[in-house]
Design a binder for these strands. Structure first.
Lengths: 197, 197
DNA sequence: CCTTGACCAGAGTATTACTCTAGAGTAGCA
DNA sequence: TGCTACTCTAGAGTAATACTCTGGTCAAGG
C-alpha cells in the first residue's frame, strides 16, 4: 500500500471511530484494528492521538471552507450570496454529518495545540476571502458595517447552532424545512438598515 | 470540612484545572492536588472523571439558564425580551468566562453519557419556559412562527458563535461593542414580517 | 550488488484512571 | 460513657493505554 493511501485509510478509520465512540474513549489500538494497520505504522504517520485528531479536523475544515467559499463567490448579489453561504453550510453538514459532528466536538484549542499554526493557516485566508466578498456590499450600503467576528457570528451562528442539535437526529426533512428560515435570519441579521430614500 | 463543602471545593478546582489544561490532559491527581483532597475522597464524591466533568457542566448550565430565563421573564415586550435574553447571554459569559469556556468545550454527548437523564432534566423545562414566553408573541403576530429548534438557534446562535471566539481574548470592551449588534441581529431574526397595515 | 532512507511490525514501558481495604470522624441512643 | 451504624477519607495497588524502541522489509539510486 502506498504511504499516502495508508495515511488516508487511517484518517477515515479514525473519523468513523471518533464519531462512533467519541474522541476520548476511542483508543489507538481500535484505530489500528479498524484501519488494518500496525501500531508502529500508525504512530509513524501521526505522532500522537491529538495529532491524529487534529489532522482529521483540519482536513474536514478545509473541505467545509472550500464549499462555503465556492457558494459565496458564485453570487454577486448580496442577499443571494448570504443565502447561498448559509445554504452551503447546511448542505455540507447534511452530506458529511460525521465530519461535521467531529468538527463540532473537537475543540479548536486542542487542534491549535496539536498542530500549531495550521489552524491559522487555514482560517486566515478563509476569513480574509469572506471579508473581501462583503467589503463591496458594505461600501455600497447594502450590508451593515460591523466587526469581522460579529459578522461571521451573525452569518453562520444560527445555522451552526441549529446543526449542533440536528446532528443528534439527522432528519434530512428537518434540515430542508429549516433552511429558508435560517437563510432569512442570516440575511436580516447582516443587511443594512433601509435608507430613507 | 463538611461533605458538601468539600464537594464544592473539588468542583471549583476541577473547573479551573479543566479550563487551564483542557479536560483530556488534566489528570485526577492534579485535581486532588489543587483541591487539597485525597484520591479516595475525590472518587468517593465523583465516580469517574467524566462524572466530574458532567457535574461541573451541569452546574454551570443551570446557572446560565437561570440567568437567561430571568432576563426573559422580566420583560413583557417582545423586542425588549429578546434583546434582554441576548444581553444576559453575553453578560453571563463575560462574568463567568471559565465556566462558559468549559461549557463550550465539553460536548453534550459526553455529559449525556456520564450523567444520563440529568441533561434532559435541565434542558426540558428550560426550553419549555422559553417556548411559553414566545407563544403569546407568536400568536399576536409579533414574532415569526418557526420550529422550536430553529428559533433557539436564531435567538442565541449569533451570540453563542461570537462568544466562542471572544473567549480566546476576553476583551470586555469588544463584548460591549458587539452587544447591540448581536441583540439587533437576534431580534431581526425572530421578529415577524411587517404587516401591510 | 550495496547503500540509503522511508515505512512497518510488535513487544515493552510509564502514566493514569480507577479499585480496595482499612481507618477516622459523627450522630443517635441507652 | 459505651455501642452501633454510617459517611467520609486515606493511600497503596491494579489494569489499561498512549507512546517508545529495536529491528526488519522494500524500493530507488548508484
Amino acid at each position: 500500500m502506498a504511504p499516502a493511501e495508508r495515511r488516508d485509510v487511517i484518517l477515515r478509520a479514525a473519523l468513523a471511530l471518533f464519531v462512533e465512540r467519541g474522541f476520548g474513549p476511542a483508543t489507538m489500538a481500535e484505530v489500528c484494528a479498524r484501519a488494518g494497520v500496525s501500531n508502529g505504522s500508525l504512530f509513524h504517520h501521526f505522532p500522537s492521538k491529538e495529532a491524529l485528531g487534529a489532522a482529521v479536523y483540519l482536513e474536514g475544515l478545509g473541505r467545509y471552507q472550500a464549499r462555503l467559499l465556492g457558494a459565496l463567490r458564485a453570487e454577486a448579489d448580496a442577499e443571494r450570496g448570504v443565502r447561498a453561504a448559509v445554504g452551503a453550510h447546511l448542505a455540507w453538514v447534511g452530506e458529511n454529518p460525521d465530519w461535521a459532528q467531529f468538527l463540532f466536538a473537537m475543540g479548536r484549542a486542542e487542534v491549535a495545540a496539536a498542530a500549531p499554526g495550521e489552524l491559522g493557516a487555514l482560517n486566515r485566508p478563509f476569513f480574509a476571502a469572506v471579508e473581501a466578498w462583503f467589503a463591496g456590499h458594505v461600501a455600497a450600503g447594502r450590508v451593515r458595517a460591523m466587526p469581522r467576528e460579529v459578522r461571521a457570528a451573525v452569518l453562520v451562528g444560527p445555522a451552526q447552532e441549529f446543526c449542533r442539535g440536528w446532528l443528534r437526529r439527522r432528519d434530512p426533512a428537518a434540515l430542508e424545512r429549516a433552511r429558508p428560515l435560517l437563510e432569512g435570519a442570516a440575511w436580516r441579521g447582516v443587511k443594512a438598515k433601509k435608507r430613507k430614500a
